[in-house]
Structures are given as C-alpha cells and as structure tokens.
C-alpha cells in the first residue's frame, strides 16, 4: 500500500479510480435531480433521507474519494511543474488540449463550487429565508422545490452554476478517457473510441445538469 502512494503510476491509479467513482456519483446525482421535472423532488428527498444510514455511508465515501483526488492531484501537479522548470520561447501543442493542460484549475473550480453548492442546498445558508428546513409544501414535506426554483431565478447563481458546469465538463473530457488509459484499458483500437465516448458522456452531463437552472431561469418551471 505504501508503495502505491509513492509510485508515479500508483498515484495516477488512485486519481483514476477515485475520479471514476466520483463520476458515478455525478451520474446518479443527475438522475435524482431530474425528479424536479416531475415535481417529485420533495418526495424523492424524503425517501432518500429515510435511508439515512446509506446517505451517511455515501457521504463518508465521497469525502474520502474527494480528499484523495484533491491531495494526489495537487501533489502530481507540483511534481510535474518542478520537472519542467523552464518554458520554451515557442511551444506548439500537438495533442494536448485546453482541457488536458488545465486539469488542476478546472479541478479547483469544481472543488470551490462544491463548497458553494453544499452551502446553498445542503446547509441552506445562501438564502436562509427560503431554507427547506423552515418551509414545507402542501404535503408537509421540507420544500426543496421552492428553494431550488428561488435560487435559480437569480442570474448570479445561474451564471455561477453554468460556469462551474463548464469547468466540470472540461475536467471530464480529459479525465474520463485519461482514467481508462491509466488503468491500462486502452489499446490502439479502443483509445479513439474511449476518447469520443468520454466527450459524449461529458456533454450529456453538461446538458442534463445545465437544463435544470436554465429551465427555471427562463420560467418554464415555476415556483
């Protein structure tokens, strides 16, 4: 185990596996979020909270995954920077992309956004007057629906979410295919297929996630 965290390939494997598991979380999170479209979200949240031991296990696992991904991501970036101290006067990128070269920045933006997102909808301190902890719907359930709709009617919050989602998409465009390469699952034949599938999956997530605040902002879903 000690060898794994010291080795270059080992650290990359940790990045790949934690990244893929967090990707799975993002997929399930989006599926859960779509319950807003069917006005089920308050009931969905109730059912989820009834499963509180499971919720806490997932929270604990996610915090562990995120910490590992963050710590090793920063460590690898610092090592890589120090391995390339002098810049070229002219350097052309042949295969590297904007996404691949800015993983640390898109990653840190996502981490910062995550903090805001938790403050917004989990701790509910951004708009305390709309907190679902205080307000209930007609069924007597905590009114998440109104809290979410109220939040996304604000242009600043909408922009913040969209900008963060673009950072997440860029992170996934490189990260998804990269994780398969690191886990040794690429061959000359699979590499272009996996790269394309990664881009498509990232875009589907972007459209899925961005649709919720956008639909609320333009007034299709009303509070």
């Amino acid at each position: 185990m000690q060898f794994l965290i010291k080795s270059s390939v080992g650290k990359k494997l940790i990045m790949a596996i934690t990244g893929q598991l967090m990707f799975l979380f993002i997929v399930f999170h989006l599926i859960g979020n779509t319950s807003l479209y069917f006005s089920w979200i308050n009931t969905y949240a109730k059912h989820l909270h009834d499963l509180w031991p499971l919720v806490w296990i997932v929270r604990f696992v996610m915090i562990t995954l995120l910490s590992l991904h963050l710590v090793f991501g920063i460590q690898l970036t610092l090592e890589n920077r120090s391995a390339k101290p002098d810049a070229y006067a002219i350097k052309k990128s042949l295969r590297a992309t904007f996404a691949s070269k800015n993983m640390i920045w898109t990653g840190l933006i996502i981490a910062g956004f995550l903090l805001y997102h938790l403050l917004h909808f989990t701790f509910q301190v951004v708009h305390p007057e709309m907190s679902a902890k205080l307000n209930t719907d007609v069924m007597g359930l905590p009114d998440l629906f109104s809290m979410i709709v109220f939040g996304f009617q604000n242009f600043f919050i909408l922009s913040l979410y969209i900008a963060s989602l673009i950072a997440l998409t860029l992170h996934l465009v490189h990260g998804l295919q990269s994780s398969f390469q690191t886990m040794g699952l690429n061959t000359d034949q699979t590499q272009p297929v996996i790269a394309k599938a990664g881009v498509i999956a990232s875009l589907i997530l972007l459209i899925g996630y961005a649709s919720i605040p956008v639909v609320i902002f333009i007034g299709i879903v009303k509070g």
């Binding site: 270059s8 990359k12 890589n80 391995a83 042949l94 691949s100 070269k101």
Partner: peptide
C-alpha cells in the same frame, strides 16, 4: 521519478 522526470497525465504530446 528519482531522475527528476514528471508524471504522465495523458496529454499524448
């Protein structure tokens, strides 16, 4: 790594 090379992050350059 001992020789001061960096880690591979799959840029494919």
């Amino acid at each position: 790594m001992k020789q001061g090379f960096g880690n591979c992050t799959n840029h494919y350059e």
